[in-house]
């Protein structure tokens, strides 16, 4: 047998270390609570509410992310040059913003004494510390990532497919609906699930903008934070629950995502 060369060993070593770094904590968390504990969690009203709010806000946010993100991503994929670079930088702003800072910024914009708070209050709309705040926070943080990934999908489409559709008499909207979207549909399914997974895990931005109000804005992540102060074991169990949801979503992504090289 040929002896592996030093560089190969270096790469394999780094890979193994990283793999361990990822898997060990996950394993530790999964081993921390017994299935019975997990089941008993689901009997607590407060936790069921937190689970409900987590899923509800993510599911409400998803169509909004699509409605805002898809046209933006498609529009951006048709831009080029300086305009496109500037818009991409705009998109990266929320991505590099620390989540806690994003929460503060949202509060300053839409809070009661914020830039638009009074205007909104005149219409009787109060966003902070409501479910709307959770959804808005999700939109703010997740949509840019979603747009970035959809941009890759749209950039991968052969433009001539759309031109062929136009020449067959389809309007631009029809072409978008009947050609562009169906061609990337598997990628879009995967992106939808990624967006859900990301929405479910948000913490910093929500705790600052929406607050940690059990039964109203407390999502599972926030419930873990609260539990950790009083009963760490419950926090571990909740963590396991959240992890399982994420793993389910991850599995779904890989079942629906296109196999390598089948895109575009």
């Amino acid at each position: 047998m040929k002896r592996p060369r030093p560089f190969t060993l270096l790469l394999a070593g780094a890979g193994l270390l990283l793999g361990g770094l990822i898997l060990l904590p996950i394993l530790a968390l999964l081993l921390s609570s017994r299935p019975a504990t997990l089941l008993s969690l689901l009997q607590s009203r407060e936790i069921l509410l937190a689970l409900w709010i987590t899923l509800l806000s993510a599911v409400i946010a998803l169509p909004l992310i699509f409605a805002l993100g898809l046209p933006s991503a498609y529009g951006l994929s048709r831009c080029s040059g300086r305009l496109r670079r500037s818009l991409e930088i705009l998109l990266e702003l929320p991505m590099v913003m620390p989540p806690v800072v994003a929460g503060l910024a949202l509060l300053l914009a839409f809070g009661r004494r914020g830039l638009f708070g009074e205007l909104l209050a005149d219409f009787g709309v109060r966003i902070p510390f409501t479910l709307s705040a959770v959804v808005l926070a999700i939109l703010f943080v997740v949509t840019p990532f979603f747009v970035r990934r959809c941009l890759v999908l749209f950039d991968g489409i052969d433009r001539r497919l759309e031109e062929a559709s136009l020449l067959l008499g389809a309007s631009q909207l029809q072409t978008f609906w009947y050609v562009t979207l169906p061609v990337v549909r598997r990628g879009l399914f995967a992106e939808a699930i990624m967006a859900l997974a990301q929405s479910i895990g948000l913490f910093g931005v929500i705790i600052l903008f929406a607050g940690n109000l059990p039964g109203r804005t407390q999502t599972l992540s926030l419930a873990i934070y609260s539990a950790f102060e009083s009963d760490p074991f419950q926090a571990f169990a909740l963590g396991t629950l959240l992890l399982l949801i994420s793993l389910l979503l991850l599995a779904a992504v890989h079942l629906l995502a296109p196999p390598e090289g089948q895109h575009g």
């Binding site: 497919l161 031109e163 062929a164 559709s165 136009l166 020449l167 008499g169 631009q172 050609v179 169906p182």
Partner: peptide
């Protein structure tokens, strides 16, 4: 006139059939 109103049929060199 935009392409969809020209009533011109075009066959591209690499066909460009709709994969879906």
């Amino acid at each position: 006139l935009p392409p969809e109103q020209r009533r011109i049929g075009m066959v591209f060199q690499d066909r460009c059939l709709f994969p879906h």
